[in-house]
Simulated assay, not measured.
Amino acid sequence: MKLLVIEDEFKAAIYLRKGLSEEGYIVDVAHTGVDGLHMAAVGDYDLVILDWMLPGIDGFAVLAALRHTRSMPVLMLTARGQIEDRVRGL
């Protein structure tokens, strides 16, 4: 299974890549919304793990653009926890 992690915090991205790779997943990482969107658009990924707050374009803009061109599962990753944020994420 091939995963794309779009996460701007380098330590978090490294931990995610390491943990998921140890479980047998193939993991690519992008550190900006622009790079992540490009990789997701041209790559063949089974799942995208997408941070909400990214430099360049945010996670919601990445998700909206992906939904116009691709159909793949996306797991939103965020530290935000207010009800409004959770509803927006759905």
Rank of each mutant, 00 (worst) to 15 (best):
M1N: 07
K2Y: 02
K2G: 02
L3K: 04
L4I: 08
V5S: 03
I6L: 09
I6W: 10
E7M: 06
E7F: 01
D8Y: 03
D8P: 04
E9A: 08
E9D: 14
E9W: 06
E9T: 08
F10W: 06
A12C: 09
A13P: 05
A13T: 04
A13G: 13
A13M: 10
L16Q: 05
L16A: 14
L16Y: 08
R17E: 14
R17S: 15
R17T: 06
R17I: 02
R17V: 01
K18F: 12
K18P: 00
K18W: 11
G19P: 01
L20C: 09
E22D: 08
E22P: 03
E22T: 04
E22F: 14
G24S: 12
I26A: 15
V27D: 03
D28T: 03
V29S: 03
V29L: 09
H31D: 06
G33Y: 04
G33A: 07
V34G: 01
D35A: 11
D35G: 02
G36T: 06
G36L: 05
L37Y: 07
M39P: 00
G43L: 05
G43E: 00
D44M: 07
D44F: 04
Y45P: 01
Y45L: 03
D46T: 08
L47Q: 02
V48G: 01
V48P: 07
L50M: 10
D51C: 05
W52K: 06
M53C: 10
L54W: 04
P55F: 07
P55Q: 08
P55W: 01
I57T: 06
D58C: 02
G59H: 08
A61C: 05
V62G: 01
L63I: 04
L63E: 04
A64T: 10
A64E: 13
A65I: 03
A65F: 11
L66S: 01
R67E: 08
R67G: 09
R67M: 09
R67A: 11
H68F: 05
T69V: 14
T69M: 12
S71K: 02
P73I: 11
P73L: 10
V74C: 06
V74R: 00
L75Y: 14
M76A: 10
L77F: 15
L77H: 13
L77S: 13
T78M: 13
A79K: 06
A79C: 10
A79N: 09
R80H: 14
R80P: 01
Q82G: 10
Q82Y: 12
E84I: 07
E84M: 07
D85R: 09
R86F: 13
R86N: 01
V87C: 07
V87M: 11
V87S: 04
L90T: 02
